[in-house]
Computed example of a mutant assay.
Amino acid sequence: MIPPFDTIFAVPLSCEDCIKSVSESLYKLNGISNVSADLKAQLIHITGTTAPSSILSAIQDTGRDAILRGSGKAESAAVCILETHASSTTDNVRGLIRMVQVSPTMTVLDMTLRGVKSGTYKVTVRESGDISRGAASTGGVWDAVAAKAASPPRAAKGVFGTIEVGNGGLGSVFLDRPIQIWEMIGRGIVVSRKEGDFEREDPDTFVGVVARSAGVWDNDKTVCSCSGKTVWEERKEQTSKGML
């Protein structure tokens, strides 16, 4: 059973009716135990066991956009942006994996793909975070050698399962694994319809590197110190590139 965890979203809110509309939409989701809002700060705080991507969709169903500002406790969250390295494509971003460690022995993974061919995609964490040649330079599956040598043999930590993508090019899965966030930081994640022998020019193989992301209350910026853009201006750019 997944323990409840916290997520915070920035949401444009102008009045109490806005808060009521968003809250009602969120409480329709399975796994939501509490929703609170800060009208002045334009933040929605959710506690539960629901995938962040499902929360985002529920907020967007009210006609508002939302930006995930933090998940879980400090240093318990991570993210991986999935891109194709094929030179034939211009819109390289194909998906996103959000990760939150919800207990000492469990991490939940919220994986989404968009704009890809239909089919079954295998998700694996790799030994290396080298993506200079796309998935081809990420090494073997993380923990595969040790898992095979164990007595009895066990499943490798780096095998995360599959994502099913329908004819509309969308796919998502929310699952949990007995791993810790720190074990994955800096590793590559490959999502592909192939088992191995990855090729950089394969447009159906996506790769990214796991990086830490903000926990709840860790991220209070409203303007990026690098670009000078507001978080909503950044959000507009990200969605235009395929970010979910």
Rank of each mutant, 00 (worst) to 15 (best):
Val159Cys: 03
Val11Lys: 01
Gly134Met: 12
Phe5Gly: 07
Ser132Val: 13
Ser151Pro: 00
Ala135Tyr: 06
Cys18Trp: 05
Ser151Glu: 06
Arg235Trp: 15
Lys122Arg: 13
Leu13Gln: 09
Leu113Val: 08
Leu113Lys: 04
Phe160Gln: 09
Val102Glu: 01
Gly161Thr: 09
Thr49Ser: 10
Lys122Met: 11
Thr162Glu: 12
Val141Trp: 00
Thr47Leu: 07
Leu82Gly: 00
Gly134Glu: 06
Gly188Phe: 08
Ser87Phe: 01
Lys28Leu: 15
Gly129Val: 08
Trp142Tyr: 15
Asp176Ile: 02
Asp220Pro: 02
Asp6Trp: 06
Glu237Tyr: 08
Asp197Pro: 00
Ser103Lys: 07
Ile2Ser: 03
Leu39Asp: 01
Ala146Thr: 04
Thr7Leu: 15
Glu16Gly: 10
Pro52Asp: 11
Glu164Phe: 03
Leu39Ala: 02
Gly169Cys: 10
Ser172Asn: 13
Ile55Tyr: 01
Lys28Ala: 14
Pro153Ser: 02
Ile8Gln: 14
Ile46Pro: 06
Thr105Lys: 07
Val216Met: 07
Val123Asn: 03
Asp91Met: 14
Val210Ala: 09
Ala66His: 01
Asp176Cys: 12
Tyr27Ser: 02
Ala147Arg: 05
Phe198Ala: 04
Ser118Arg: 11
Thr222Phe: 13
Thr89Gly: 00
Val93Cys: 11
Arg94Leu: 05
Gly72Tyr: 02
Cys226Asp: 11
Asp91Trp: 07
Gly70Thr: 07
Gln101Lys: 09
Gly196Phe: 05
Asp204Ala: 03
Leu68Ser: 12
Ile59Arg: 01
Ala149Pro: 00
Cys15Trp: 08
Asp202His: 09
Glu164Ala: 13
Asn219Gly: 00
Ser57Arg: 06
Phe5Leu: 10
Gln180Ala: 13
Met106Lys: 09
Ser172Glu: 11
Lys241Asn: 09
Ser87Met: 05
Lys28Glu: 15
Thr205Tyr: 00
Ala66Gly: 14
Pro152Ile: 02
Glu24Cys: 09
Cys18Pro: 11
Leu113Arg: 04
Asp6Ala: 10
Gly70Asp: 07
Leu56Asn: 05
Leu13Thr: 14
Lys28Gln: 15
Ser192Pro: 07
Gly63Phe: 10
Arg98Gly: 12
